[in-house]
Design a protein around this nucleic acid. Sequence first.
DNA 1: TAGATTGTTAATCGATTAACAATC
DNA 2: TAGATTGTTAATCGATTAACAATC
Lengths: 211, 211
Amino acid sequence: MKPNEISKPVLKRLPSYLAYLKSLPEDGPANISATALAAALDMGEVQVRKDLALVSDGGRPKVGYLRESLIADLEQFLGYNNTTEAVLVGAGKLGRALLGYGGFAEYGLDIVAAFDADESLAGQDESGRPIYGMDKLPAFCQEKKVLMGIITVPATAAQGVCNLLIANGIKAVWNFAPIHLDVPPGILVQSENMATSLAVLSVHLSAQIRG
Amino acid sequence: MKPNEISKPVLKRLPSYLAYLKSLPEDGPANISATALAAALDMGEVQVRKDLALVSDGGRPKVGYLRESLIADLEQFLGYNNTTEAVLVGAGKLGRALLGYGGFAEYGLDIVAAFDADESLAGQDESGRPIYGMDKLPAFCQEKKVLMGIITVPATAAQGVCNLLIANGIKAVWNFAPIHLDVPPGILVQSENMATSLAVLSVHLSAQIRG
DNA sequence: TAGATTGTTAATCGATTAACAATC
DNA sequence: TAGATTGTTAATCGATTAACAATC
């Protein structure tokens, strides 16, 4: 089963399973059933069972899955074992917050360097990651064969940065700028969109108030 | 047309339209067609047309929509005009970053206060918002009739905070903790999940590498 | 009028759910 | 064996897309 045959809805649910499994006490029961997982996460049990069948064949009738194996299978499938190196562009507030966040290692992500148009930011950030001027970006990405770029620049600069990253070998872009990025086929853009979440919440509240 | 009749996929696309329309130059053409919007955002034009028809009746054959009216209709629909007051719980790195972000006003969101279990954080944050101890939360939420809560505490504390918020009148929760929150019917939880985005990117790269 | 664009009705597609058979 | 659980095949549901009619 090739991972790219998996549908996006399924793919987006997998991290929840993983997070829940990891939150279980180490000295608890060694097995867990899809039924139990579904109940804990408020999901349909058939859906959970089908999702798990895509990433693991360790499910046994009557006992369910071995928790540790299932965790391993999910991590394997999600590629959290082999580290992905990423560069970050835009060392403003958000950019530095992401640089400083230590939790990405758990997902196999390593932000190896940051770049910013403002040369005065160059140096090391508090977490010890280097910050360079934009002129250093092309050589760095090409030499290190970096595949992921994280964009935390203002919306007006985002498309240009995106183009630059792609020109230097990046295949996946994590975009925090609130703007649609145009990319050639084969490049994946995943946009982190707070406006989207806010819209869902906001409309819910409007409906709530109006009755 | 009641807003809660709209489907979630549609709702999540609306902010993109709005952002794009706002990015257009003020002195540009006054009209824009669904066709042009679709092309700019890499979407199907039928889809865009159908989405817009749900929030506006200003579309005219041959000319499209009046840009300004469409912006107004979208903002109206998304409830960005009437301000929503929110409280934030957890004044750590992420919490203070959100407090300091000035952009929420554009979406009709006003974070009026923050709370943290660590009393030593009490006082004012740099942006002038007050930070209180957790004991002040119940009275504050009830008196101000706050409807939205933002959770930026560690995963282990999130469910407890969520319960507390709901007990004090909150109807919508914006959750940044990487954990599933259980809530009673009628309460909406929107989780901001970076692990989800990372999974999508990570699997794309794995597939890319393997060929 | 001709053509661009809108909005709607019907067809397709994909994801979820339900029903069932298999297994320990 | 009986019952819990798995995995699979079929049915349903909802969203997207295609085809078309309406309009300026």
